[in-house]
Design a protein around this nucleic acid. Structure first.
Lengths: 198, 198
DNA sequence: GCAGATAGTAATTGATTACTTACTTGTATG
DNA sequence: CATACAAGTAAGTAATCAATTACTATCTGC
């Protein structure tokens, strides 16, 4: 009777992907806090209860969103440039572009609420960030062996690079203090690079 | 009958200060999300309704907490060192100490929830951060005129310094990835400084 | 074409939480 | 000492929201 037409009926797999997309869009538009199962359903043209046909609970939704983000961000870390410093610049600029395209990511990652509500997801995020720093450090050490960076600075340099990414993400996605982080990227990376080799 | 003894009765001014302290402690222990008026009251040995004798609503509580943080952080920006780079180092290390002492600050400031729920407070935080960057930049320009920094880098250098503070605050207060940011401070500042003067 | 299985609805539930209201007690002051 | 006010209680309210339940329509494989 008041049922949606047949075309509205999709597989659970499709709906799961759709929910992830809707959550990313809603987080970008209205923030992480605003995301309720009712709002997700409304965006999809479904009723609130239908959401729970595709995910057992809200934590599972966040987990799927996190998986999606990890997949996308993970692609950024596949080696492209031969020279390690070029590779670091590519990743840095890629991060800026990602933050710009998906403000939901920093908003989710910076959400204290999120980390307290879902300890398992908190651990995932922490491991992701820690892994990123390790990757930076190994690239910097590679640069050191090639004579492009002076020795003994790789740990601090990796921390500085990672922290500056996070700080810019905060200023962009949370504070709306910088409209497009991509514009700041090249200048900032150049400055960071100057403290590597001198 | 079940009333608290006379000693428990205090002035509203005292209670306001007490509520701010309790909120800071609760945010440090259990995160920003966990803070409810019932929990605040419990910590003070009062009933939940009593909280609203001292603040008209929850936004006013957050506003008072923010005022307290601004007062404390503001003190950090009073000029102490003669040489601008020393002054920058003092502020940087002071920030690390503040983050360590009051994890509630980054948790509040990074909270997307907070910024969406209270636009007026969001603006205050944004202005605080923007002001901090301006202050950094003017100190760096001062260093430039004294020949301690090469020209044309003040804006990027200020952004890099501020962003690295914010990134470390995130790693410390949200991710629990670094136990004591004060230990990382000197090394990071030294690295940042090296890119000022080349 | 029929028998599951599955995606959907509609309504409800139970927990949480900011805020209110009516009343009570302590305290300072003239 | 009386009294007015300020700080507190106790109970309740209205709204929100994740999750459940009982039922229904649609698709798919045999």
């Amino acid at each position: 009777m008041a049922y949606a037409p047949a075309s509205h009926r999709r597989t659970s797999e499709d709906r799961q992907q759709e929910i992830v997309e809707v959550v990313l869009a809603l987080a970008a538009e209205r923030g992480v806090e605003a995301i309720t199962t009712a709002l997700i359903a409304e965006r999809m043209g479904l009723t609130q209860g239908a959401v729970f046909r595709h995910f057992p609970n809200k934590e599972a939704i966040w987990s799927a969103v996190l998986d999606w983000l990890k997949l996308r961000l993970g692609a950024l870390f596949e080696r492209v440039e031969a020279r390690p410093v070029d590779e670091l610049e590519r990743i840095f600029l890629g991060y800026m572009a990602f933050i710009h395209a998906y403000p939901a990511m920093p908003r989710l990652v910076f959400s204290d609420t999120f980390h307290h509500a879902y300890p398992a997801l908190h651990t995932q995020v922490r491991d992701m960030v820690a892994g990123c720093e390790v990757h930076f450090r190994s690239l910097i050490e590679e640069a050191t062996t090639e004579g492009e960076a002076i020795p003994g600075r790789s740990a601090a340099a990796a921390t500085l690079l990672l922290a500056s990414i996070q700080g810019l993400a905060f200023q962009s996605a949370i504070l709306n203090l910088v409209d497009d982080p991509r514009l700041r990227g090249p200048q900032l990376f150049a400055l960071w690079r100057s403290c590597l080799s001198r």
